Computed example of a mutant assay.
Amino acid sequence: MFRKLALVSLLSLAACSQPARDVPMTQVAVAAPTAAQVVQDVRAIVEPCELASDRASGDIGLLVAAASPRDGARAAMAGAKSACLTAFGALQKAQAPGEVRDACLSAIYTRETLADTAIELLDGKAGPLAVTTLRYKADDQGAAGRACGAALARLDGREFAMAANPSRQ
């Protein structure tokens, strides 16, 4: 009886302490994405917002100049707003370093608010300073877009610089 008890206790101890080589594959850490992959992912998220904003920019420019935008301007602006809201949500969930995430979120946000202000102006819901606000937001959008691009370029360049000279860490 003592032998059986000793054997059972040894077997239960062995079952509880598996060696590291027996760790199931589901528990192995996943490698972090490379900088190039992060840049590619962020660009894929930001691009639809940029393209939609570019399509609406001519009409927004007409509003800033106090001219009448073309037919379909509201749809282009609404498309930009929607694309940028979608991009904003996706970028918040993406794996990107803080500098890149913050700069690109800012760029997306300024594009979305520019489109939103333009829609309000078209709908007659904007106040008397709406055109001036639109001008400032257009300037902000340009600066934020450049900051996003610069953050992506720094991240992309950092990976290649380290790959070219691994002793530089």
Rank of each mutant, 00 (worst) to 15 (best):
M1D: 14
F2Y: 15
R3G: 00
K4S: 13
K4I: 05
L7Q: 11
S9I: 01
S12H: 02
S12F: 01
S12W: 00
A15R: 01
C16N: 11
P19R: 09
D22N: 12
V23I: 09
P24C: 05
T26S: 11
A29W: 13
A29L: 08
V30W: 11
A31K: 07
A31V: 05
P33S: 07
T34S: 15
A35F: 06
A36I: 00
A36T: 03
V39Q: 14
V39N: 15
Q40P: 12
Q40G: 10
R43I: 01
R43W: 00
I45M: 06
I45A: 05
V46S: 13
E47F: 10
E47A: 14
L51Q: 15
A52H: 08
A52C: 14
A52L: 11
D54P: 15
R55S: 12
R55W: 04
A56F: 07
D59K: 13
D59H: 10
G61S: 04
A65K: 11
G72I: 02
G72V: 03
A73S: 11
R74L: 07
A76Q: 07
A76T: 02
G79E: 02
A80E: 04
A80Y: 00
K81C: 11
S82T: 00
S82H: 01
A83K: 01
A83T: 03
C84N: 08
C84K: 04
L85P: 06
A87T: 08
A87V: 04
F88A: 01
V100L: 04
R101P: 15
A103I: 05
S106K: 08
A107T: 06
I108G: 00
T110G: 08
T110P: 13
R111C: 12
L114Y: 06
A115I: 08
A118K: 13
I119L: 05
I119D: 00
E120I: 11
E120K: 15
L122N: 11
D123S: 14
G124W: 03
K125L: 10
A126W: 01
G127H: 04
G127K: 13
L129C: 07
V131M: 10
L134F: 12
K137A: 06
D139K: 05
D140Y: 05
G142C: 01
G142Y: 07
A144N: 10
R146V: 09
C148H: 14
G149H: 15
A151Q: 05
L152T: 00
R154S: 09
L155F: 12
D156P: 03
D156Y: 09
D156I: 01
E159C: 05
F160P: 01
A161C: 02
M162P: 00
A163H: 02
N165D: 08
N165S: 10
P166K: 09
P166T: 05
P166E: 04
P166R: 09
R168I: 08
Q169D: 10
